[in-house]
Design a protein around this nucleic acid. Structure first.
Length: 122
DNA sequence: ACTCTGACCCAAA
DNA sequence: ATTTGGGCCAGAG
């Protein structure tokens, strides 16, 4: 069970719920994703920038990959910069289903229109 | 202390 | 549209 940024010389913390994790970087990423409105999507890079972590889109991806089970974070509202879903297999179907439930649809080629559904932060 | 691998991104070719 | 090369950085082996 891997942990984010756990110092090797300390015992890993017990798992905590997403919104109570004390790591400020995680807090900012979670908070930013939380502010994506229902029916909108944002890109990994956009989340990184909004969370004051410019250029760290991959970090956002890792954070979502390691999302604690039971988290209520709207992970499905995050897609890549080319308008595609980045997860594969079962997760991709789940993401498409969750988005469809919010009215976010993919085109014939599996792409989501950033122009139509992209979140523009204030 | 390496190298490899990513839920990534962007400019250039 | 696709490829390439560079940036990013934490885990895993």
């Amino acid at each position: 069970m891997s942990r984010l940024r756990a110092p090797s010389h300390t015992t890993p913390r017990a798992p905590v719920r997403a919104h109570s994790d004390p790591d400020p970087i995680l807090q900012r990423i979670y908070a930013t994703i939380d502010s994506i409105p229902r029916g909108c999507i944002a890109t990994y890079g956009q989340i990184a920038r909004e969370a004051h972590l410019p250029g760290r889109a991959r970090l956002v991806g890792r954070v979502l990959r390691e999302l604690p089970s039971g988290s209520e974070l709207a992970w499905h509202r995050v897609i890549n910069a080319s308008g595609r879903i980045s997860v594969t297999g079962e997760s991709a179907r789940a993401q498409r289903r969750l988005l469809a439930r919010e009215g976010v649809c993919t085109d014939a080629r599996g792409r989501i229109s950033l122009a139509r559904f992209g979140w523009r932060a204030d």
